[in-house]
Design a protein around this nucleic acid. Structure first.
Length: 757
DNA sequence: CAGGGACAAAATGAA
DNA sequence: TTTGTCCCTG
């Protein structure tokens, strides 16, 4: 019996069409991963194609791993040799593997957003740029856009909406590339652009890959940008066995250069292309699909398709109006609690989606208050935490000493007596002699203006780096990670000021070391470089932790490709979803709202059975409340599909303390909170650290004439007026109990650090 | 060169 | 309102 008999006729057709260009227009939930899986298995099993001749590009590394697993179930261990990965990871692999032939250093570092911003900032500093409307950030944005449309510094003209400053930007672009080159680094965009460029320059290398990639598959084709489009052409080469899968209605990455025309014009690019539409949906109920179809049909710019299902109509879609974002979160959490307690859905079957990462905070607080398990995908990502970036910068520097950005990050972290003046001298010397900073460290006697103490400190640092460099290939990866942590002095620094915050940091680093162990275990050829690469190219969806029994919180973008039995989409308000920017742009170009609508469409089609959409009348942002109007998208859902309900504030406001986000947040994270007295009483800022372990009791009386005496009122920017009800100690170490709020329900105990004297 | 005050920026989405 | 960065001072 044939492998493909498990597919429906259209799917079968798609899996069997292996020669020539093929576009599979796959609607949401139409089983495209299934088709890809079976298609590749069919190639290997039935057509005897060698696995290493098959390439499959997916949107995340996790998706790649899943695809491989599923293929393995059909063809066994042979699946190991299939080339899979994201565009970025495959390019990185190629660039490293053939670095020498392509004119690169093999150990190049991959710069992320923060790194490239630091690099640009450095350029701003050296060129002494102080422009009103140009910031490192905005320039990076423009350069990134240029790269995504394959525009080099030389061909850069003012075609990208900048007026008079195009020459300057072109100059900055050039300098930026020079800086990266000097640091032996590539940024995310370069991985793609450089592969395309170097393939063109070195046809022999390109030919070797074309020979290898006999059958190329690209998932999520609607979100490819210009360089990715060109890679598709290069990789599929003369065989033109290119199978792209996508859905024009789900194109949501315009901001990073995705060009929806790639999919809309596929037939023009490949005249002999075959097109197969998958429109039967196996995921959602009838009503959810009807809503999705109705919404997306408002878009003009699309190929057009109608999803249909054999499934039942299912529940109505709940649309819930809430008074505020806080109540919205409460409603979501309450509803989830109900569903879980009645056993209708498990936590892992529920997802809460939102437009912007910032919205997760309120939801997170409410979930935490209710004690329900949840996991946040993306957001403040693990690898962007300070301590993790610092430690990774050490490791990066050790594998690529030319990486000045990493060097600058850690040369005085932990503080080791290398101050700004010394660092500036080093930088100047490096610049003048065309060296990187690491190289100047062994030439200190030639650097002007260093005093003997600085030289001593720098030498000590230099020794640390040399030692670690020597050790990097001597011991297993996780052991090495620990060595870096200890030997760099980072551990000592964290241990020195022991509080809740630093304990969290130590835990994070432990976790990083655990990842290193995992990485080494997964890949016998693992080394420091491969670990750093994996980390750099990780997508937020990739490092989602234990999702086994937790509610999932994520942005709509991250939700692409996933499905959940029950889905909440929150914040359906004008200027939030669609975003203010999209609303504004749509005044001139009405179609700019369409991308947002597609995003909403993606959200709706994530739901299998139950969809709840919420909207708030008021939202808390930048410290005050703003009024919100319901999103236009809400009106696009046909009324007969909707159950409308309202969530009124009175129902909840009775016994809740009046504190807003920052209070809970601060208590939870034990962050230092600046608490200022009223100007009349106290002109100096005083820092408090919340001390949850204090057993200080409410009635203690400590009398004192100091400005923080009992009975004194103080004001905090978020929590309003509070009164000191108790105090302990004096001078630098003083505990003060401050009470906020009218009902005397909550006592905040503070640990004060006063000005000496 | 560490610590504090003044001031600006923040939040669209992400490999 | 909160957070990060720059510059100034002791």
């Amino acid at each position: 019996m044939s492998l493909l008999s498990k597919l429906n006729p259209t799917q079968q057709n798609a899996a069997e069409t292996v020669k020539g260009p093929l576009l599979i227009l796959a609607g949401a939930g139409s089983g495209k991963t299934r088709v890809l899986t079976y298609r590749i298995a069919h190639l290997i099993n039935d057509l005897n194609i060698a696995p290493w001749n098959i390439l499959a590009v997916t949107f995340t590394n996790k998706a790649a791993a899943e695809l491989k697993d599923r293929i393995e179930e059909l063809v066994g261990h042979r699946s190991k040799d299939i080339w899979t990965g994201t565009f970025h990871s495959i390019c990185a692999r190629i660039l490293r593997y053939d670095a020498d032939k392509l004119g690169l250093e093999r150990d190049f570092t991959i710069y992320d957003e923060t790194d490239r911003r630091s690099a640009m900032k450095r350029i701003f500093d050296t060129l002494n740029i102080n422009s009103e409307d140009l910031t490192p950030r905005s320039v990076i944005r423009i350069i990134s856009r240029a790269k995504n449309s394959m525009t080099s510094p030389t061909s850069f003209t003012s075609d990208i909406e900048n007026t008079h400053s195009s020459e300057l930007i072109s100059e900055l672009y050039r300098s930026y590339q020079a800086e990266l080159h000097k640091n032996n680094a590539l940024d995310f965009d370069d991985l793609l652009v450089e592969t395309v460029r170097r393939f063109n320059e070195t046809p022999s290398v390109m030919a070797s890959y074309q020979e290898r990639f006999q059958y190329t598959h690209v998932d999520e084709y609607q979100d490819t940008n210009r360089p990715q489009y060109m890679l598709c052409q290069q990789w599929s080469g003369e065989t033109r066995n290119l199978c792209v899968v996508g859905d024009d209605d789900q194109s949501i990455y315009k901001f990073r250069g995705a060009d929806i025309r790639n999919i809309l014009d596929f037939e023009k690019d490949y005249a002999d292309a075959k097109i197969i539409r998958l429109e039967q949906n196996y995921r959602s109920t009838g009503r959810i699909l009807q809503a999705a179809n109705a919404v997306i049909s408002q878009n003009k710019n699309r190929k057009g398709k109608q999803l249909w299902t054999d499934d039942k109509d299912g529940d109505l879609i709940d649309i819930v109006e809430c008074d505020s974002d806080r109540l919205e979160a409460k409603y979501v959490v309450q509803t989830i609690r109900q569903q879980i307690s009645t056993g209708t859905y498990k936590a892992s079957e529920i997802a809460v989606l939102y437009r912007t990462n910032a919205q997760s905070r309120t939801l997170e607080e409410e979930l935490q208050r209710s004690g329900m398990p949840y996991t946040i995908v993306g957001g403040t990502r693990f690898y962007e935490r300070r301590e993790i970036k610092d430690l990774l910068s050490y490791m990066r520097l050790l594998s690529n000493p030319a990486d000045d950005i990493g060097m600058l990050r850690i040369i005085n972290m932990p503080r080791r007596g290398i101050g700004n003046t010394s660092i500036n001298q080093l930088q100047q010397y490096a610049l003048a002699n065309n060296l990187n900073i690491f190289e100047t460290l062994s030439n200190l006697e030639n650097v002007n203006g260093l005093n003997s103490r600085s030289i001593k400190s720098i030498n000590r640092f230099h020794d640390i780096i040399i030692y670690l460099q020597r050790m990097k290939d001597e011991i297993p990866l996780p052991e090495f990670g620990r060595l870096v942590f200890e030997h760099s002095g980072y551990e000592a620094m964290l241990k020195q000021d022991r509080n809740h915050e630093t304990e969290g940091r130590v835990e994070n680093i432990e976790q990083l070391i655990a990842f290193m162990a995992e990485h080494e275990e997964a890949d016998p050829d693992a080394n420091l470089l491969s670990f750093l690469e994996e980390v750099a190219l990780m997508s937020p969806e990739d490092d989602s932790n234990d999702t086994n029994n937790a509610i999932t919180l994520m942005t709509l973008h991250s939700a692409k490709g996933l499905e959940f039995p029950m889905v909440f989409i929150t914040g359906l308000e004008e200027n939030l979803f669609p975003t203010a920017r999209a609303v504004e742009e749509s005044r001139e170009t009405p179609e700019s709202i369409e991308e947002e609508r597609r995003l909403f469409y993606v959200g709706i089609t994530r739901a299998c059975q139950k969809l709840v959409i919420t909207q708030a009348h008021q939202r808390y942002a930048y410290g005050n409340f703003i009024d919100c109007k319901p999103s236009r998208f809400l009106m696009e859902i046909p009324q007969e599909l909707v159950f409308l309900c309202q969530e009124i504030s009175e129902a909840n406001s009775n016994n809740e303390q009046p504190y807003r986000n920052s209070f809970d947040n601060a208590q939870r994270t034990n962050r230092k909170i600046p608490l200022r007295g009223t100007p009349k009483d106290n002109k100096k800022g005083v820092h408090y650290e919340w001390d949850e372990n204090s057993n200080h009791s409410f009635g203690d009386i400590i009398d004192n004439d100091d400005f923080l005496s009992v009975g004194q009122w103080v004001r905090h920017s978020s929590w309003g007026r509070g009164q000191i009800v108790a105090r302990e100690g004096s001078g630098e170490k003083m505990k003060v109990a401050v009470q906020f709020g009218p009902h005397l329900k909550k006592i905040a105990v503070a640990f004060a650090q006063l000005e000496p004297g």
